[in-house]
């Protein structure tokens, strides 16, 4: 029987640092298997929102349900079924790629560690780098290793914070293809924070627009284009960022 429980539901989620509100109360739910983009300029609250969903930042108010369970009260029942990737978080440089992946595979309780690493290495073109120290890889190779770590437990919920930042267009496109593959194979729910509008248009079936910590719009990419009368998401993004008429009109 197909479950109607969303993979992720946040209700009235907010974060303040003293008098500064980083994220105003926001609510949304992500159906299982969906890919949702979190769009917004610098300081819009994307990373804070993702940080709260990962359990790394304590919300000031609101609730987070992951796979139907209260994440703030019982994060460990969900963490083994989630993972995340960000170019701003690294892995130990002196360990080889294989060693790093082996450690995370054991942390996540992967059954056959060697086979899992071999499979990921093959699908992410990492086989020739497996025994190289992680610190000696190029930016593109590091991103692939980070993606391998993010997929090591076949996550049902994947949080991505600008997964293709600083990658050349070819490598970025290749990474997007791997993410699409994973989503289709595992019916994985993906929440993706990005500045890359082409990436969001390609991958996401829904977009949450953030501005100054507020959720200002929530729709499918095509709906947003129609609503703002634009031909691409970059123009919509600029409309929202610059406060031009759009959804409100």
């Amino acid at each position: 029987m197909a479950s109607s429980t969303p993979a992720l539901r946040v209700t009235g989620l907010s974060k303040s640092y003293g008098a500064t509100v980083a994220v105003h109360p926001s609510s949304f739910a992500l159906p299982a298997g969906s890919v949702t983009g979190l769009l917004g300029g610098n300081g819009a609250g994307k990373t804070t929102t993702i940080g709260m969903i990962m359990g790394l930042i304590a919300p000031t108010a609101g609730s987070i349900e992951i796979f139907g369970r209260d994440f703030l009260k019982d994060r460990y029942s969900a963490l083994g079924r989630m993972n995340f990737e960000s170019p701003y978080v690294d892995m130990p440089h002196r360990l080889t790629v294989r060693q790093n992946l082996a450690v995370f595979a054991r942390l996540y309780g992967v059954a056959d560690v060697e086979a899992k690493i071999a499979g990921l290495a093959e699908s992410l073109a990492l086989t020739e780098f497996l025994d190289r120290p992680s610190g000696k890889l190029s930016a593109g190779q590091k991103t692939r290793v980070a993606l391998a770590k993010a997929l090591i437990n076949d996550p049902e919920l994947l949080l991505l914070d600008e997964p293709t930042a600083s990658l050349d267009p070819d490598t970025a496109d290749w990474v997007r293809s791997r993410l699409e593959d994973h989503r289709l194979r595992r019916n994985c729910t993906i929440l993706l924070a990005s500045h890359n509008m082409a990436e969001v248009e390609r991958l996401c079936d829904r977009v949450l627009m953030l501005k100054a910590g507020r959720l200002v719009d929530d729709a499918a990419p095509a709906e947003l284009l129609a609503r703002y009368g634009r031909t691409n998401l970059e123009e919509v993004f600029l409309d929202v960022a610059r406060g031009r008429a759009g959804a409100a009109s």
């Binding site: 990962m54 790394l56 963490l79 978080v89 892995m91 130990p92 942390l107």
Partner: peptide, 18 residues
């Protein structure tokens, strides 16, 4: 300190590691 130097703390604290 190795975890801090390696910027690995977020990876660990969002894993099932208690």
């Amino acid at each position: 300190l190795e975890e801090l130097w390696a910027r690995n703390i977020p990876n660990l604290f969002m894993s099932p590691l208690r």
